[in-house]
Amino acid sequence: MKNEKRMKRIATYVFLILVSFIFFFPFYFLIVSITNPSIDITRGDLLPGSHLIENFRTMIETTPIGLSIWNSALVSVGQTIISIFVSSLAGYGFEVHPSRGKEVVYNIILLSMMIPFAALMVPLFRLFGTISGIVPALGIDTLFGVVLPYVSTAFLVFFFRQNTKMFPKELIEAGRIDGLSELGIFVKIFIPTMKTTYAAAGIVTFMNSWNNYLWPLIVLQSPSNYTVPLVISAMGSGYTIDYGSVMIAIFITTIPTAVIFFVLQKYFVQGMVGSIK
């Protein structure tokens, strides 16, 4: 009986190690590949080589990767700040000042969750064509155009409303007695109190924005405006592909999300799971 239990234990660990190996293997392949020349990567070389600096140089010289990292940073940071501010304002408004009319509006917002982005791409592209005609700086082929559809999303409004339920309402009264305006209460009391909620929402929004591919692919046209996923996709699908520089580009542009994940793991999980509790 005891022996059987131990065998089960060992089997569990063997299984878990095997599973971990499979899940980690593509990362290992990525890390090794950044040091190997193109030809070895296609042959599936699994040992580190000495081509790291050369791969890096090829990447810098032949692709606009540096510029795309800057574009992606602008888009992701901008989108994160704007959308969590606007959406949390709404979540707060719905929860702190509830009314029948607002419930109707809230349900309409939630309904937009059922609209898949794939269905939106054509009409949204046409809408941005119109916007381009009126304010070119916000339309097609601009970084603002990448951000605009995400200024407010149903998911974030929902997420902030759910989390506002935990916000102590006494603080609002206290703020009113201190003579703060409604917006003042929101900025000076609500935001600082809900720091962890903001961190969680911010991480999820940043990641989604950093990795977003379809909408930037549609709205951006000049390579100088490309975000990271567009450049990497273009690097990986040309006729002559330099695998080494693709791999190092992937490696470098995964670092931000990896750092966020490892440093802010707690908020990260909260941001993912928090919405369904």
Partner: peptide, 30 residues
């Protein structure tokens, strides 16, 4: 207060209508 709270709520609603509902209605027409 009521007026302010509606402003809070209506800004994002306006964005969602503009970038989700309006395009979908437009799409049906197209």
């Amino acid at each position: 207060r009521i007026w302010m709270s509606w402003t809070f709520v209506l800004i994002p609603t306006l964005f969602i209508i503009t970038f989700y509902f309006y395009p979908m209605i437009q799409a049906f027409w197209i």
